[in-house]
Every structure is written in structure tokens, then in C-alpha cells.
Amino acid sequence: MLMTVIPIAYALVSLAFLLSFWRLIIGPDAPDRILALDTLYVNTLALLVLLGIHLGNAIYFEAALLIAMMGFVGTVALCKYLLRGDIIE
């Protein structure tokens, strides 16, 4: 059961990747692109968690945690840049 569901989940998350990537390319504004990038981070997180369950290896969790943190910091930094034209004041 589980091993039939996981490929379907892979396919759905990969489609999510493509859709976010499409938005990243066409924009049209900077906030759209940052939102797409943020969504890509979260999609990567989903893919890593799926990979962890599929391979039965908990080591991917550490990578997922780091991506979650770096993704958030990156999004905030980019938004700060749009708001103030500067990241560190």
C-alpha cells in the first residue's frame, strides 16, 4: 500500500515543482518570484521527507530542517531588500 502511494506522491510533488518553477520564470513582479522561490523551498522539503520515508533513512531530516530555516531567512532577506533597498541597516 505504502509503496504504491509514494510514487504517486512523488509525481504530485514534482508537478508542484514545475508549476512553481513556471511562476518563477514568468514573474511578472519581484514579489511573485520571491513567493515562487519560497514555495520551491517548501516543495523541496516535501520531496526530502518523501525520500526519507521511501528509503527508510532518517538522515534526510537534517537536510530538510536546514532547508526550512535557510528558506525562511532567504525569503525574509529578499522582502527586506524590496521594502528598504537594503538588507542590513
Binding site: V13, L15, F17, N43
Partner: peptide
């Protein structure tokens, strides 16, 4: 839900 979120984005 992950897919629908990105679908909304696109």
C-alpha cells in the same frame, strides 16, 4: 495539498 498550493500559485 502541496500540488494544489503550487497550482494556485501558477
Amino acid at each position: 495539498f502541496t500540488f494544489i498550493g503550487s497550482l494556485g500559485l501558477a
